[in-house]
Amino acid sequence: MTGINYHGIWAIYRTEMQRAFRTIWQSIITPVITTALYFIVFGAAIGSHMQQLGGVDYGAFIVPGLMMLTILTQSISNASIAIYFPKFTGTLFELLSAPLSAFEAVLAYVGAAATKSIGIGLIILLTATFFVRVEILHPVWMVAFLVITSVAFSLFGFIIGIWARSFEQLAIVPSLVVTPLTFLGGAFYSIDMLSEPWRTISLFNPVVYLVSGFRWSFHGVGDVSLVASLAFMTGFMALCLGVLWWMFRTGYRLKP
């Protein structure tokens, strides 16, 4: 057998998606309820006392940030559990003994994780339309940002899943790093509202670039330039791919 193992990629992708569909209602209801809560608290309760941000109603302003917040955490948790669980239960042996390259394995697992994130992102967007009027100025860029972010953070999650040796370690990065960075990354405010030095410090927060680019695709305004956002995303994805390449090459925490 030569060439790409399409059957193998499809087998993993399908199994991962089946896992998601087994808990389809959890997968849908959780983001819907969370989004609704955010809109009730931030949009209705606080937003009504806030002025427009960059010419956009506060309720509509937080939609991209809210989507990003969920996409980041979902991508990381989906992809990390997808590879950590086989490690934990011992079924990883089958993946390692299969005629499947590292690239194909990553493509299948990350593809499935990213698909789920994109789905959830779209569910949130749909939920948001029940609360606020959402306008998307650059729909193609919006989809591009959605896909790139989902893939990049699924790659990142995959790395965490390989690295983690316990469920605690698996949970530590999303809860202690990603969620704070997202909240401080301008998901619910524009970093222009901050006074110095906090504004400059915020520029070192990678999530700022994601949220900013994504918000630009919605409202045509962002905190940083589109080029900076794209450069960050590409760089981050390249870094993740490089780390994964090294992990599979050396068998790091995958095989002794």
Binding site: H7, G8, A11, T15, R19, P86, T89, A98, P99
Partner: peptide, 18 residues
């Protein structure tokens, strides 16, 4: 994979091996 059915896990293995 204890949550999978017997049939699905066997189908998965065959596909995985190309």
């Amino acid at each position: 994979d204890i949550f999978s059915t017997v049939w699905n896990t066997v189908v998965f293995s065959r596909g995985l091996f190309g």
